[in-house]
């Protein structure tokens, strides 16, 4: 990895770690390389969707997936500046086990001039059975001269 790529990843990491909503959910950036991101989130009683079972709400899993997919796009060598979600589909395979951390891994598998295509999977402690998977399309925001960094 050259110095330019390293600097770009550092900026992406700083940006992702500064996102207020991600901080509110306790998200942690575990890995960020070219087009691949891993972000995890602790189990938190505030995020429970069903008080009888203690299972985390699907919406919180969506937030984790969206962040992780966006991070994967930002870390891609051909995606110079920022990104925004065009669409995101989440499939919920099973309830995340209460008390366990949720880990998402997203890969930006194709980039055109304007669009980035991303796939992601989320797991709890059972690495053989995904909790959820996601597919999304994201914008490629080209850096503009008139836009402050």
């Amino acid at each position: 990895m050259d110095r330019h790529e390293e600097a770009k990843l550092r900026v992406a990491r700083q940006f992702i770690e500064a996102i207020p909503h991600s901080r509110a959910l306790g998200m942690q950036l575990d890995a960020l390389t070219n087009g691949v991101a891993e972000i995890s989130m602790p189990y938190d009683l505030r995020l429970v969707g069903d008080p009888r079972t203690g299972v985390i709400h699907g919406g919180a899993v969506s937030a984790l997936m969206d962040t992780c997919c966006g991070a994967a796009v930002m870390s891609h060598p051909e995606a110079p500046a920022g990104t925004a979600t065009i669409d995101l589909r989440i499939d919920y395979m099973r309830a995340a086990t209460p008390g366990q951390r949720i880990r998402a891994r997203a890969a930006c598998y194709h980039v055109t001039r304007s669009v980035a295509f991303v796939r992601a999977t989320a797991f709890d402690d059972d690495a053989d059975h995904p909790v959820a998977s996601a597919t999304g399309a994201f914008t490629i925001e080209r850096a503009r001269k008139d836009t402050p960094a």
Partner: peptide
């Protein structure tokens, strides 16, 4: 801007 995950949620 609002977080995309917030909008989804």
């Amino acid at each position: 801007a609002l977080h995309g995950g917030v909008t989804a949620a």
